[in-house]
Design a protein around this nucleic acid. Sequence first.
DNA 1: TGTTAGCACTCTATAATTTTGAGTGCTAAC
DNA 2: GTTAGCACTCAAAATTATAGAGTGCTAACA
Lengths: 347, 347
Amino acid sequence: MATEHGLSDRKMKILHAVIKNYLETGEPVGSRTISKYTDLHLSSATIRNEMADLEELGYIMQPHTSAGRIPSDKGYRLYVDMLMEEKEQELNEMQEQMLDKADRMEQLLRQAARVLASNTNYATMVSTPMSNSNKIKFIQLSMVDEEQVIAVIVLGGNVIKNKIINVGEPLSNENLLKLNMLLNTTLNGMSIEEINLGLIARLKEQAGIHSSVISNVLDAVADAIQVEEDMQIYTSGATNIFKYPELSDNQSAQEIINAFEEKQQLTELVTQTLAQEDNTGIQVYIGDETPVQTMKDCSVVTATYELGDGMKGTIGIIGPKRMDYEHVLKSMKRLQNELDHMFHKKE
Amino acid sequence: MATEHGLSDRKMKILHAVIKNYLETGEPVGSRTISKYTDLHLSSATIRNEMADLEELGYIMQPHTSAGRIPSDKGYRLYVDMLMEEKEQELNEMQEQMLDKADRMEQLLRQAARVLASNTNYATMVSTPMSNSNKIKFIQLSMVDEEQVIAVIVLGGNVIKNKIINVGEPLSNENLLKLNMLLNTTLNGMSIEEINLGLIARLKEQAGIHSSVISNVLDAVADAIQVEEDMQIYTSGATNIFKYPELSDNQSAQEIINAFEEKQQLTELVTQTLAQEDNTGIQVYIGDETPVQTMKDCSVVTATYELGDGMKGTIGIIGPKRMDYEHVLKSMKRLQNELDHMFHKKE
DNA sequence: TGTTAGCACTCTATAATTTTGAGTGCTAAC
DNA sequence: GTTAGCACTCAAAATTATAGAGTGCTAACA
């Protein structure tokens, strides 16, 4: 009964049993346990023989002689691939905790992270959606008082940027109007990448630069537009890491917690995830497969959600390699669905 | 030589020595150590007698018989009060790490937290400034497209709020103008607290509500204004907690880390700190004195910085009770100064 | 009367040692 | 091909021994 991975049915069942059991207990699994656990009705001795084979093939390993077996990364991989292949499971289960209808996206995402964390008992993160080719939808300058102008820029997906600009001398109403006209006709519909120094120089020219004020304002606007990385990352349940001794022991736990606090590495994770195109938008990184070195002793599961107009965000779960993949994948899909749904409804 | 705390000079010196030594080592301090440490030239036996007295008075304690002494909360308190009393130390030391001139406040504060953490080896937090009586400076509605209006509200201190409002039907230019006029004349200069449902109702009346669109918009604006808690808290070095065994052992470390992630409790800390009026704006909470129960095994030092127009923010350091108070207080004052300086220059 | 040397005692931390038990690999029999 | 049986291994837990830091008390001293 060899399938593409070349394992007999029986070996497959045993591997499965080892992993399942290890996921639950976190302890190495012995032949005797398996012998009772499965419905194979084989003696421990037979199991031992099979396990020796599985070890030779690299799917399981022994922490030390005279200990039971634990799954290797390769073993996990086989198991996860199998899970992912399974026919799309119906998502009809009632969600344990419904997301409140928070009308602020920030709060919504923050809560999503929290729900996911309490649902799975792993560390979670949710990024705000971002687009790498965002277009300008609307631009407007207004006088706040004699000295200050506010620039408001709305991008596709209703991302809003703004900047207060200090002008030395008051800007006449006429000039303000002219500037607004100019900015809107020139920049509307443009993507951020297209705006460069050359363009700004041309704008200045067209504005007819006798007034240095106008030049200042244009520079400030350019600056405000350019500022990237509005991406926020919300995390929750970082301390769940401590629930798994294999992670909490050494100092890698500290590094992980630190990564969660400083966010820098999570940003990289998000970038990587978004770059990877995939049909389901769900990815599983096991151990060394992870893009973020800090998490090389963990498994990382990420999912992408969409806002419809090209904006994408990422959900992530970080936990031990003996993660309950089945549950996590299910939760991920559900949350992904829910977010997609929510945002599409709103727009 | 009894002072107000009723301790002889010699006892005071011994207490001081115990604390100083314990701050450095984290180990209980024995009589022999003190005998050599100080310039008192007393034998360990004499020190022992004095220490027995100090213990009876509640300034130091023994973790167990036959161990050295460690300071009690009361002992720390005496020590800190003494430090605080000392004449303002000149802040002329060169700062180890100058804050870069980041033009975005967010980044500036984030960095401040980071610098402080790496400088002290404790966990730190910095809150964005907030005002509890903030006034509206400018309000404007603009059409983004046929279906959407953006409301931009500038508050004192140049805090900007905005909200995209979906209007079912297009809003005529005339109506938009009218609304803008109305909003500005009515709300300008008002503090957020003054805006309530009654006022909004009156506004609607004045706008002459045949159009439900206008009503919608007004509701949305009111909503946008009301949304409180723009306060952000940036943290850094939460994992420094693990450097101090007395904190990292039990699970209280997890709780602290969690507090740093979820921010909720830190918000309370900030609120408390800001409520407390004080000449220097610096506060030290030792052990149980802290407003946040989670940190009852820590010491918490907070400082308030100001933006001049009534906006105040908070800096905080959380560490073990055997914190290097001298260094921390100095660093705090310096950062406080620097922030005050920076913001006043900018405005 | 305040200070000090000396000593018996306490108690933790560390190291050294033993015990236990889960698990293996191998062999021989079914 | 499967299984019972057995000797062997090794980590973890329990036990015991050892070392050393520190104390309180007493008695002697200046």
